[in-house]
Design a protein around this nucleic acid. Structure first.
Lengths: 153, 153
DNA sequence: CGTTAGATTTAGTACGTGCTGAATATGCCC
DNA sequence: GGGCATATTCAGCACGTACTAAATCTAACG
C-alpha cells in the first residue's frame, strides 16, 4: 500500500530533522508538507499525524522560523495554510555556525599541551574537525550561488 | 589562570562529542585525555572531572569502542591507564553511515509526489542533503589516505 | 584461600524535554 | 459589540537518559 511508503518517508524526514535537534514531531510535519502537493491547514496536519493541535502549532512556528515552511493566511478566515518552503540549507548553516565557535574554543586550548606526541594528536583532532566543517560550508555556499542563479532567470 | 582554560577546553570537547549523541560526561573525559601528556587512571579522571567511578568506567568503555581512547593494562596491578587514541574520524563515519541509510529512505519516497512544483522542491531537499553528506565522506577518505601514508614512513 | 585493590554492573534517582488538553487570545462576520 | 472559528500559550504529565552509589565481580599477592 502507498500510505505505508508515505508514512515511512514522513518518519524518515522526522529522523533527519531530529539529527539537527529539532523535535521529531516537528520533523514529521515537515515531511508531510514535503509530500503534499497542496498547502495544508493545521487541523489536517494534526489529523494525519495524530498530533494535538498545540503541537502542530508550535511545530509550524518552528519550521517557519527556520525557513522550512511558510504560512499562507486565508483572506476571510483565520485559518492558515502551511506549505513547505524549500531548504534545509539554513539548518546546515546554523550547525556550522555552532561548529565554528566550537572550533574557536578548541583552538583556544590548543597550546595547553606543548610536548609532542600529545600535541600532534590534539592538532590532528582539531584540524580534522575544522576541515570537515569547512568543506561543508564551501559546498553550501556554492549551492546558494546556484540557487540564486536559478531564481533570476 | 590556566586551569580555567583547561576546563573550558574540556567542556568544549564535551559539547563536540555531545553533538554526536555521546553523553557530555564521556566527551569531557575525552577532552581531559586530549590535554593530558600522560595516560591517566580511572580514579584520576574521576577526581579531576568530579564524576563517579562508575560514570568514568562506562565513559572510558564508550570511548574505547569508538576508537577514541585505548586502555593500557599495568602488569602487576589491576589498575588501567587510559590515553586518547586520535581520531574522531570514526564518529564522522558513523554518522555518515546513518545519513546514507536515511538518504536511501528519502529516495524511496521521492516518487510519492509527481506534479511539479512539489516534486522539484522535494528533489532539491534530498539532493542537497545527499551532496552534503557526500562531500564530507570524500573529505574523510582523503584524510584516511593521508594518515596511512604518514604511518608507513 | 583470604584479603585487598581495583573495575564493572545494576538499581534507583533526578532532570530535561516534548507532548497533550485546557485555557486564553485573536481575528472574522453579523 | 457578540458569537464563532481558529491559532497560540501554558500547566501538567510522561518518558528517556545520564549520573550516582552500592553491590558484585575479578585479578593480584601474601
Amino acid at each position: 500500500m502507498n500510505a505505508d511508503r508515505r508514512g515511512s518517508f514522513i518518519v524518515s524526514v522526522g529522523d533527519l530533522l531530529a539529527s539537527w535537534n529539532l523535535p521529531h514531531a516537528t520533523g514529521r510535519v515537515y515531511g508531510l508538507l514535503l509530500v503534499s502537493e497542496v498547502p495544508l491547514s493545521l487541523d489536517m496536519i494534526a489529523a494525519e499525524l495524530a498530533l494535538s493541535k498545540g503541537s502542530v502549532s508550535t511545530a509550524v512556528r518552528q519550521l517557519d522560523s527556520w525557513g522550512l515552511a511558510r504560512t499562507i493566511p486565508q483572506p476571510g478566515s483565520r485559518r492558515l495554510l502551511v506549505e513547505a518552503a524549500g531548504g534545509i540549507a539554513s539548518l546546515l548553516e546554523a550547525s556550522h555556525a555552532r561548529a565554528k565557535t566550537l572550533i574557536a574554543a578548541l583552538r583556544e586550548g590548543e597550546d595547553l599541551v606543548s610536548t609532542d606526541p600529545a600535541r600532534r594528536r590534539l592538532e590532528d583532532v582539531i584540524g580534522l574537525f575544522a576541515s570537515y566543517v569547512d568543506v561543508g560550508s564551501q559546498m553550501l555556499s556554492t549551492y546558494r550561488r546556484q540557487q540564486e542563479r536559478g531564481k533570476e532567470s
